[in-house]
Design a protein around this nucleic acid. Structure first.
Lengths: 365, 365
DNA sequence: CCAGGGGCTGCAAAGGTTTGCAGGAGAAGT
DNA sequence: ACTTCTCCTGCAAACCTTTGCAGCCCCTGG
């Protein structure tokens, strides 16, 4: 029923190979012939059958994108950016959701393997060795995890955590709690590592709580623990948890930031609207989505705009593909959920909710 | 490089057709042979090439899902539900985002047409006639719009709007504003129609504002207008706008619900966490996603669990496919953003933030 | 002992496209 | 006028799988 290349060939009096070339290698066909073919194709409503094309070229023009939880506001901007970047190159994106489950992850990669030219594996929960194994089945770009030998794009959450801790220490906090993320999260380990270092350097105590589910409920559930450890400031694995914590603290009658300061990570949209507005580490999620698509498609496609983001990108060459590791910068955004702590160095001019001088260079809005 | 059906056939000493049948019609092959084939297939890491399969069967086992804006928290639960429902039937989902743009919509449908077995068109902004045209290219299920002759699933926003208006009127509001949604939205028209009727019946004035972009900014931008029309209550096209409005009213020093009551529609996750908590009309988005997938796959697939949702589903038969129209029920959720208005009937026992008696049966939480 | 049938397997065509190779026409160079 | 070259087009194989048809073997019933 649908028009095939053969119908177009017949209707325009040329061989099917000419029609094929009209679409896939236009420069090889006489402009006159080309426009004639295009006209009849248009009139017949012809659209190339991608399955047939994929069969012979081995390239599906599809990309898989696997995320932990679509409903987590962290991901949609990334998905959106990846999708639009891919579409621009005539690729389509399969989206799948693992529900934070490591085994679902592997199954999904394998299920997609034969159907896509590559997979964007975002915030994986499975082990590195499993990821490597998957990467033998299908080209992989890992987002939010550094795995050696594999192209990956990560946010510099280490720097972000450091900034956050320094911000808190600078405000006079000495007892800080870290709300860890889910088990298996590279980001969570990275934050932890970096936060511990920064806390030590600043002469503050850091109590690590977790692992926790990276959701509002996870954050809310940790509120009790946070109070018990007697800290005056909290850094959460992500904004979602921070928001849940904020909410629960409010219900418990704990004032933020007067009694406890809270910092999140991600700067998702809702964080601008909490009361108090959430201080957080902004991660460039859209840029990450675009970069990942670029890295994946770079190898197969001739015309690729080199992603020469400033200050980013460490290249290494392995067997036959360039495995770049891209690190995107993060930025501390100071809002209203952080305030002076008990050890604030004497400085009479401070207003409780104003951002302190020393870290003002991080302020974004 | 990757193992094909031929490799498996050779390695297990059978014809390729036997291997094929092992996977696509297991009951036709001797159990003994079958397990042998499965074993060698496993050991070779064989996975059927879906492109080749699609080429001959004409079924891709893929479904397209087109939404207006992935970053709008309304959609992720729907996407998530659709994806998991589809996966359960061994289908994969292409997700695409139109950025609220009607022409992008059509392009996307057409681009996907040859690559999927059907498209879920969610909250379309294009005209009915264009949709019908698209439906000639590829099986379509429309979500959030009723278009005759096409299978569709909608939420009963009419009822929802009615409930909301009655709730407000019951609280003593006589001057109500409706924040309209984007141009081209069926839902927006439906809400408007229904709200006007309900307002008239309740003896209240309804001022329609809009169209507006269905975002937080859209809601915030309308705050000024809302104040100028002198209403004491607002029904917004969706929660996102309601949240934006809430936020802006707060900045302007307008107290909610004391001065103005606000009702949203959708009950997205963040609505539970605004201050005050948002009164809203809950729409069953996940159920809609599942139902839409079911309707789409129903026609092609033998084993289909009949979605016999109670109180739902009007069937009609056209040429060769059943074009059902499913309407899912909505539910008013009363929280803290609505309170008594100036014409509240004498009833001394009222507390300002408590839900009034007459509509208590709608309360969900 | 034969006919019939059921269970399983092999054969080969078909599906729509891409692409290396070859050939033809005309232009340009010698 | 002949070669060489460029530009364009046609030919046919190949990609991997599904599926209708036919054939085989073996069993059962008569």
């Amino acid at each position: 029923m649908p028009a095939t290349i053969r119908d177009v060939a017949r209707a325009s009096g040329v061989h099917i190979s000419t029609v094929s070339r009209t679409f896939s290698a236009p420069h090889l066909v006489n402009p006159e012939t080309r426009s004639r073919v295009l006209a009849t194709a248009e009139s017949l409503g012809y659209r190339p059958n991608r399955a047939a094309r994929a069969l012979i070229t081995g390239r599906t023009h599809n990309v898989g994108l696997i995320v932990a939880d679509i409903a987590n506001p962290f991901f949609p901007p990334l998905i959106k950016a990846a999708e639009s970047q891919a579409r621009q190159r005539d690729y389509h994106i399969f989206v799948a959701d693992t529900n934070e489950d490591a085994t679902a992850e592997e199954e999904l990669v394998l299920a997609m393997a034969k159907q896509v030219d590559g997979v964007l594996l975002c915030s994986p929960r499975m082990s590195n060795s499993l990821i490597e194994q998957c990467s033998r089945e299908v080209p992989l770009v890992v987002i939010n995890r550094l795995v050696t030998g594999l192209p990956s794009v990560v946010m510099d959450v280490g720097q972000g955590a450091r900034d956050a801790i320094e911000h808190l220490a600078g405000l006079g906090h000495r007892e800080i709690a870290l709300l860890g993320g889910p088990r298996g999260s590279w980001t969570s380990r990275e934050i932890r590592r970096s936060a511990l270092l920064a806390a030590r350097a600043a002469g503050a105590d850091l109590t690590v709580l977790g692992p926790n589910p990276p959701t509002e409920d996870g954050g809310a559930a940790a509120a009790d623990q946070v109070r018990r450890v007697g800290c005056t400031a909290v850094l959460a694995y992500n904004d979602l948890m921070a928001i849940g914590l904020l909410d629960e603290l409010d219900s418990l009658g704990v004032r933020v930031p007067e009694e406890i300061s809270v910092v999140g990570i991600d700067d998702i949209a809702p964080s601008r609207r909490t009361r108090p507005k959430l201080t957080t580490v902004a991660t460039p999620t859209a840029a990450a989505g675009r970069a990942a698509v670029d890295m994946l498609l770079q190898h197969d496609n001739a015309p690729v705009a080199r992603t020469a983001r400033p200050g980013v990108g460490v290249g290494a060459v392995d067997g036959r593909r360039t495995t770049a590791q891209v690190t995107l910068q993060t930025e501390l955004v100071i809002r209203d959920s952080t305030g002076p702590g008990p050890h604030l160095p004497a400085d009479p001019g401070y207003a409780a909710t104003a951002a302190p001088g020393p870290v003002a260079s991080y302020v974004k809005e």
